Amino acid sequence: ELSWTAEAEKMLGKVPFFVRKKVRKNTDNYAREIGEPVVTADVFRKAKEHLG
């Protein structure tokens, strides 16, 4: 699991709890794919757009 900024964690907190774990995993995987060592708010937004 990658490191997350406080802002990205806050955004994740707005995701319904029953899918939060999956969203975190998918976002981590997306960040790795694009070469990001940390999940930022920008990476979170891009993952959301990319993953739907």
Rank of each mutant, 00 (worst) to 15 (best):
1 E>N: 11
1 E>P: 15
1 E>V: 12
1 E>G: 13
1 E>Y: 12
1 E>M: 11
1 E>I: 11
1 E>W: 13
1 E>K: 11
2 L>C: 05
2 L>F: 05
2 L>R: 06
3 S>R: 13
3 S>F: 14
3 S>N: 10
3 S>M: 14
3 S>E: 13
3 S>A: 13
3 S>V: 15
3 S>T: 14
3 S>L: 15
4 W>K: 01
4 W>E: 00
4 W>C: 01
4 W>R: 00
4 W>M: 00
5 T>S: 08
5 T>E: 05
5 T>H: 04
5 T>C: 04
5 T>Q: 03
5 T>I: 02
5 T>D: 07
5 T>Y: 02
5 T>F: 01
5 T>L: 03
6 A>F: 09
6 A>N: 09
6 A>W: 10
6 A>Y: 10
6 A>S: 09
6 A>Q: 10
6 A>M: 11
7 E>Y: 04
7 E>R: 07
7 E>D: 08
7 E>L: 06
7 E>I: 05
7 E>C: 06
7 E>A: 09
8 A>G: 02
8 A>W: 01
8 A>C: 02
8 A>L: 00
8 A>V: 02
8 A>I: 00
8 A>K: 00
8 A>N: 01
9 E>S: 07
9 E>H: 06
9 E>R: 11
9 E>K: 12
9 E>G: 04
10 K>G: 09
10 K>Q: 12
10 K>S: 10
10 K>T: 11
10 K>H: 10
11 M>T: 03
11 M>N: 03
11 M>L: 15
11 M>V: 04
11 M>E: 08
12 L>T: 00
12 L>Y: 03
12 L>G: 01
12 L>I: 05
13 G>P: 05
13 G>C: 13
13 G>A: 15
13 G>E: 15
13 G>W: 11
14 K>I: 06
14 K>L: 12
14 K>V: 06
14 K>Q: 11
14 K>T: 08
14 K>R: 10
15 V>L: 15
15 V>S: 04
15 V>R: 03
15 V>D: 03
15 V>I: 11
15 V>E: 10
15 V>C: 09
15 V>T: 06
16 P>T: 04
16 P>R: 05
16 P>H: 08
16 P>D: 05
17 F>R: 10
17 F>C: 08
17 F>L: 12
18 F>N: 12
18 F>H: 13
18 F>D: 09
18 F>E: 11
18 F>P: 10
18 F>A: 13
19 V>K: 13
19 V>T: 08
19 V>M: 15
19 V>A: 15
19 V>D: 12
20 R>P: 00
20 R>D: 01
20 R>K: 05
20 R>W: 03
20 R>C: 03
20 R>Y: 04
20 R>F: 02
20 R>I: 04
20 R>T: 03
20 R>V: 04
21 K>P: 10
21 K>Q: 15
21 K>W: 14
21 K>E: 15
21 K>D: 15
21 K>M: 14
22 K>Q: 14
22 K>G: 07
22 K>R: 14
22 K>W: 15
22 K>E: 12
22 K>C: 15
23 V>M: 09
23 V>N: 03
23 V>P: 00
23 V>Y: 07
24 R>T: 02
24 R>S: 03
24 R>K: 10
24 R>Y: 03
24 R>Q: 06
24 R>W: 04
24 R>A: 04
25 K>N: 11
25 K>I: 14
25 K>F: 13
25 K>V: 12
25 K>M: 14
26 N>C: 13
26 N>V: 13
26 N>A: 15
26 N>G: 10
26 N>R: 13
26 N>Y: 15
26 N>L: 15
26 N>F: 15
26 N>D: 15
26 N>H: 15
26 N>Q: 15
27 T>V: 15
27 T>M: 08
27 T>R: 02
27 T>F: 09
27 T>P: 00
27 T>L: 06
27 T>Q: 01
27 T>W: 04
28 D>C: 05
28 D>Y: 03
28 D>T: 08
28 D>F: 03
28 D>A: 07
28 D>P: 00
29 N>T: 11
29 N>V: 09
29 N>A: 14
29 N>H: 10
29 N>Q: 14
29 N>G: 08
30 Y>W: 07
30 Y>G: 00
30 Y>I: 03
30 Y>A: 02
30 Y>D: 00
30 Y>F: 11
31 A>V: 03
31 A>C: 07
31 A>R: 02
31 A>L: 02
31 A>M: 02
32 R>S: 05
32 R>F: 06
32 R>Q: 06
32 R>E: 04
32 R>V: 06
32 R>D: 03
32 R>T: 06
33 E>Q: 12
33 E>V: 09
33 E>R: 11
33 E>H: 11
33 E>I: 10
34 I>N: 10
34 I>G: 04
34 I>E: 06
34 I>K: 08
34 I>W: 09
34 I>M: 13
34 I>F: 09
35 G>D: 06
35 G>H: 06
35 G>E: 05
35 G>Q: 06
35 G>A: 05
35 G>L: 05
36 E>S: 11
36 E>Q: 08
36 E>A: 15
36 E>F: 07
36 E>I: 07
37 P>S: 14
37 P>N: 13
37 P>A: 13
37 P>F: 12
37 P>Q: 12
37 P>G: 09
38 V>N: 05
38 V>G: 03
38 V>Y: 07
38 V>C: 08
38 V>Q: 08
38 V>I: 13
38 V>W: 06
38 V>R: 07
39 V>Q: 00
39 V>L: 02
39 V>E: 00
39 V>F: 00
39 V>G: 00
40 T>W: 01
40 T>E: 01
40 T>H: 03
40 T>V: 01
40 T>C: 03
40 T>D: 05
40 T>F: 01
40 T>K: 02
40 T>S: 06
41 A>T: 06
41 A>F: 05
41 A>S: 07
41 A>H: 04
41 A>K: 07
41 A>L: 09
42 D>F: 06
42 D>E: 14
42 D>M: 07
42 D>H: 07
42 D>P: 05
42 D>V: 07
42 D>G: 06
42 D>W: 08
42 D>Q: 08
43 V>K: 02
43 V>R: 01
43 V>Q: 02
43 V>M: 04
43 V>F: 05
43 V>S: 02
44 F>D: 00
44 F>I: 03
44 F>G: 00
44 F>L: 05
45 R>F: 08
45 R>D: 05
45 R>M: 12
45 R>Q: 10
45 R>H: 07
46 K>L: 08
46 K>Q: 11
46 K>N: 08
46 K>P: 01
46 K>C: 07
47 A>L: 05
47 A>V: 05
47 A>T: 04
47 A>Y: 14
47 A>I: 05
47 A>E: 02
47 A>N: 03
48 K>A: 14
48 K>H: 12
48 K>N: 15
48 K>T: 13
48 K>C: 12
48 K>R: 15
48 K>L: 15
48 K>P: 04
49 E>G: 09
49 E>I: 13
49 E>N: 10
49 E>W: 10
49 E>S: 10
50 H>G: 07
50 H>K: 10
50 H>R: 10
50 H>E: 07
50 H>T: 08
50 H>A: 13
50 H>W: 13
51 L>Y: 15
51 L>H: 12
51 L>C: 10
51 L>D: 07
51 L>S: 09
51 L>V: 09
51 L>T: 09
51 L>K: 09
52 G>W: 10
52 G>N: 14
52 G>D: 13
52 G>Y: 10
52 G>R: 14
